[in-house]
Each structure stands twice: as structure tokens, then as C-alpha cells.
């Protein structure tokens, strides 16, 4: 398959996922209201913590902690921190056998669709939450061309990385069929280490090192830091490079495990 054909197929799968995401309007509205409610809760706790710290908390002031809060809520609809995926369901009910018959790569094809669907969520959930942060929280974002481009790349990379790691969770099903326990373990770890409730930068030294040894901060904390302008120039570029390195690693690992798993696959039911 030539690179052009590969790209065309995956672009179509991405668009199909995007369209699928656009169909669930009520779900998007429900998610938006839940994310906004938690945004207000998180913002009030974290701003109170900054005030208690005399206007400064681990390098954050009131304005930057507000930006952190609303951006984390805005990206939550796109980045997969729940560990759930369609593939895990297909793995369990046996439809995976059909997927493996298709002349496309299981990993890249399923990830392209999931990322397409997830990025659509930026329109009904991400943008309104950022607008809310700007209007209510007085959040400011850098809007020069370089920061915007780097921010967009970082969101795309963070979302893609989350789905590539969730893919690894799903294909553990080649061996253990039911991956619900693993999905929950992923969710707990990801929520904490990606910096969903508290910025990773507030962690004590050893926990910070532990967090950065995993791909989780690259999923959420990095896009937040780059988009909010907390990291600029070279330091922003280097964290985006770390994201890309994790993506490469997850891609290779996924390919190897899929190859080994194909030989193990036992389809349940009939």
C-alpha cells in the first residue's frame, strides 16, 4: 500500500469518526453541562488554594490556575482518560474477527476513527468551556500564530496518544478477553497522573518523576501547558517532542502486541 493510499484511507476513517461524533448532540450537551459544573467546582477549590498560598501555588497564580482548570475541562471530552473503547467491546463479543479480516491495520484504522470522533467533541464541548473560562474566569490565552499552531498540534498529539494507549488496554483482550478491570485501572491512573484534578506540577518531587515516566502527563497536562502559554518557545517544543516520542513508542508496542495476539485469538461465542 503506497503512502498516498494509506493516507487517503485513514483520512476517510477519521472523517467517518468525526461524523459519528457529530450525531450525538444530546450526549454532547449532557457532557458539556457535567464538564462545566465540575469546572466551577475545580476552579473555586484551586483559586481558594492559590489565595491561601498568598497568590502563588507551585508556580501558578490565580489567572494561570483558572486557565488550567477550564482547559483541562475543555480537553476532557476529547482525551480518553476513561480507558473505554469500541474495540474492547468488539474484542469481548467476537466482532474482532471481522475487523481482522479487513485489509487495513487494526491499530491505525481503529485509532483514526476514535480520534476523529473525539476531536469533534472540541466543537460542542471544548470551545464553549474555553469561552466560559474566558468570560467567567477571566482566563487569557496567547493568540500568536506559533503558540496557536503548537497548541493545536499538542491537543492532536495528546488525544492520539490517549487512544493509542487505550488501544493497548483493549488488545490485552487477546489474552484475557474481559478487560474491564484493566480499563478501570487505566482510568484511575490516568485521572491522577494526567493532571485532571490537580496539575502534575504540584506533585512532590518523587511523584512528579513517577508521573513523567508514564505517558499520562503527555495526554492532558502538556496540551494545557502549551495552549495556556505556561510553556513557550523551546520548552513548549520539547514537551510536544516528548508527546510525539510516546506516540511512536505506543505505535510500535501496539504493532508488536497485535502481531503476537493474532496468533492467540480465540473468538468467544458463535
Amino acid at each position: 500500500m503506497s503512502a498516498r493510499v494509506w493516507f487517503r484511507i485513514h483520512r476517510r476513517l477519521f472523517v467517518a469518526g468525526w461524523r459519528r461524533g457529530s450525531q450525538y448532540r444530546a450526549a454532547a450537551l449532557g457532557g458539556l453541562i457535567a464538564n462545566a459544573t465540575f469546572g466551577f467546582l475545580k476552579a473555586s477549590v484551586l483559586v481558594a488554594a492559590v489565595r491561601a498560598g498568598g497568590g502563588e501555588l507551585g508556580g501558578y497564580d490565580a489567572a494561570s490556575i483558572t486557565a488550567y482548570t477550564w482547559l483541562s475541562q475543555a480537553f476532557l471530552g476529547s482525551v480518553n482518560l476513561s480507558g473505554r473503547s469500541d474495540l474492547a467491546v468488539r474484542m469481548k463479543d467476537g466482532s474482532i474477527a471481522v475487523d481482522l479480516l479487513r485489509p487495513v491495520d487494526l491499530q491505525t484504522a481503529s485509532t483514526a476513527q476514535e480520534v476523529g470522533r473525539a476531536l469533534f467533541a472540541l466543537l460542542p464541548r471544548g470551545i464553549p468551556l474555553i469561552a466560559l473560562g474566558v468570560l467567567v474566569g477571566g482566563m487569557r490565552l496567547p493568540i500568536d500564530r506559533v503558540s496557536l499552531a503548537l497548541g493545536a498540534l499538542s491537543i492532536l498529539a495528546g488525544t492520539t496518544l490517549s487512544f493509542l494507549v487505550v488501544y493497548l488496554v483493549a488488545i490485552a483482550g487477546f489474552w484475557i478477553v474481559e478487560t474491564r478491570g484493566l480499563q478501570t485501572a487505566y482510568m484511575i491512573t490516568a485521572h491522577f497522573l494526567a493532571g485532571l484534578f490537580v496539575p502534575v506540577t504540584l506533585f512532590p518531587g518523587w511523584l512528579l518523576t513517577l508521573a513523567w515516566a508514564t505517558p499520562f502527563p503527555s495526554m492532558l497536562q502538556t496540551p494545557i501547558d502549551v495552549v495556556s502559554g505556561r510553556l513557550e518557545g523551546l520548552s513548549a517544543m520539547s514537551v510536544v517532542a516528548v508527546q510525539l516520542a510516546w506516540i511512536a513508542g505506543a505505535l510500535v508496542l501496539g504493532q508488536l502486541i497485535t502481531r503476537a495476539g493474532r496468533r492467540r485469538l480465540e473468538v468467544q461465542g458463535g
Binding site: 477549590v45 491561601a52 501555588l57 485501572a185 484511575i188 491522577f192 490537580v198
Partner: peptide
């Protein structure tokens, strides 16, 4: 048993979040 462990972890991680926040400041509200 696995469910018990994950449920325990959820409780512990929630506790850890409070602890992380309080490491940075002495008191909130």
C-alpha cells in the same frame, strides 16, 4: 478481588489529591 482493589484505589487516589493540594499550602478556607 480485582474489583475490591480498584475500588480501594479510587478511594486512595481521591485522598492523594487532597494531600497533594495541602502539600502546597497550609490551609484552605
Amino acid at each position: 478481588a480485582l474489583d475490591l482493589v480498584t475500588s480501594l484505589l479510587i478511594g486512595l487516589v481521591e485522598l492523594a489529591e487532597v494531600w497533594v493540594l495541602y502539600r502546597a499550602v497550609d490551609g484552605i478556607g
